[in-house]
């Protein structure tokens, strides 16, 4: 870990200003990812700005604006507090389940929601500074594309990067059409659709998301929805807990009579960004929620998958995980 200056501020405008002026400064929230990366010499900020003193820790209802009746989750609210907030558990159980599927209790007690969005891939070539990696060092080449890529992307990868985004929470958030609220220079706020927040790698995989250097996430907004009684987050991994996803699926259904009125499906562990399964969703609208339809929808979505040498299984696993998640959602989203 390189030497760095540690500073704190309770003023978001000061924090934004510091980021703006100091190109090599980074934010410190829960620290669960940035410290790990700094120890590996992957990240090396010259200054760490501890923003845990900022006030964005609340979970509250939104009373007006385009997201009225939705909910606002503070970027600095801890994962544990978010998952256990009574409103989240009751009205957005998909979010709670996804958070609880990630990491360990200790890490969830430390990690912030904003930090979860901005965590970096766990691609082991990215983490190993002895290996080439375009995300870590643009132009160095991608070791994973011809290497060991069992954990890597099947959607949206480029020849420069095949890494996946490791978050569980983000999979639920993209499914629920969340909105990321950020504070920028001069106190200017902007809203980013969650599906636009993270990026595909393209030719510049060093950029994980569309946040500007000086911008700070302040809130995540969740629009009101009618999915609470039929949603489920399913995570398949190499061991039963405390592991990153091979494939995960967030599924949420709203019925009209015995037909699907609205459905949201997103996948984790398959792409550089949390992957929204639009084709599958579209197929299922106005269909009956049976296994045959779920299968057809999943197959339709996975048709576009481009697996690598070691992750062909993810295509079939993706189908089955999607079908199971949708089925569980229909069954009331209970964990079995």
């Amino acid at each position: 870990m390189r030497p760095f200056k540690y500073s704190t501020t309770n003023d978001i405008n000061v924090a934004v200003k510091m980021l703006q002026v100091k190109g090599h400064a980074k934010l410190l929230g829960g620290g669960t990812n940035i410290l790990d990366l700094m120890k590996e010499d992957v990240e090396h900020p010259e200054e760490l700005i501890d923003i845990t003193g900022l006030s964005y820790t609340q979970i509250k209802s939104i009373s007006s604006g385009p997201n009225a009746e939705g909910i606002s989750i503070g970027a600095l609210c801890k994962n544990t507090d978010t998952a256990n907030d009574p409103i989240i558990r009751q009205n957005f159980p998909l979010v709670a389940q996804a958070i609880l599927a990630g990491a360990s209790a200790q890490i969830r007690n430390m990690a912030t929601n904003g930090g979860n969005l901005n965590q970096r891939t766990r691609c082991s070539y990215f983490y190993d500074i002895a290996m080439p990696c375009n995300k870590r060092e643009p132009g160095a080449g991608c070791a994973a594309i011809e290497g060991i890529n069992k954990m890597h992307a099947i959607f949206g990868w480029s020849k420069d990067c095949v890494a996946v985004h490791p978050s569980d929470l983000c999979v639920a958030l993209v499914a629920l059409d969340a909105i990321v609220k950020v504070m920028g220079a001069g106190g200017k706020e902007r809203l980013i659709q969650f599906s636009d927040y993270h990026r595909l790698p393209g030719t510049d995989p060093q950029k994980d998301n569309n946040l500007q250097q000086e911008e700070i996430i302040t809130e995540i907004q969740l629009p009101k929805n009618n999915f609470a009684s039929k949603s489920y987050y399913l995570k398949v991994r190499d061991r039963s807990s405390y592991a990153f996803a091979l494939v995960s699926v967030a599924a949420a259904i709203e019925m009209a009579g015995n037909q699907i009125k609205q459905v949201r499906i997103a996948m984790g562990g398959v792409s550089h960004k949390p992957w929204r399964a639009y084709e599958a969703e579209q197929f299922l609208i106005n269909k009956t929620p049976d296994e045959a339809n779920f299968n057809l929808a999943a197959e339709l979505e996975m048709r576009n998958a481009k697996p690598l040498k070691h992750n062909k299984f993810k295509v079939e696993l993706g189908i089955r995980t999607m079908v199971r998640a949708l089925t569980q959602a229909m069954n009331g989203g209970k964990h079995t």
């Binding site: 766990r122 002895a130 405390y242 592991a243």
Partner: peptide, 20 residues
């Protein structure tokens, strides 16, 4: 290609956790 392990850490080299 490098004769090096890509399972570099306990997040990649999985050992059983309590739930297993």
């Amino acid at each position: 290609r490098w004769a090096s392990p890509v399972t570099r850490t306990l997040a990649d080299y999985h050992v059983p956790v309590n739930l297993d």
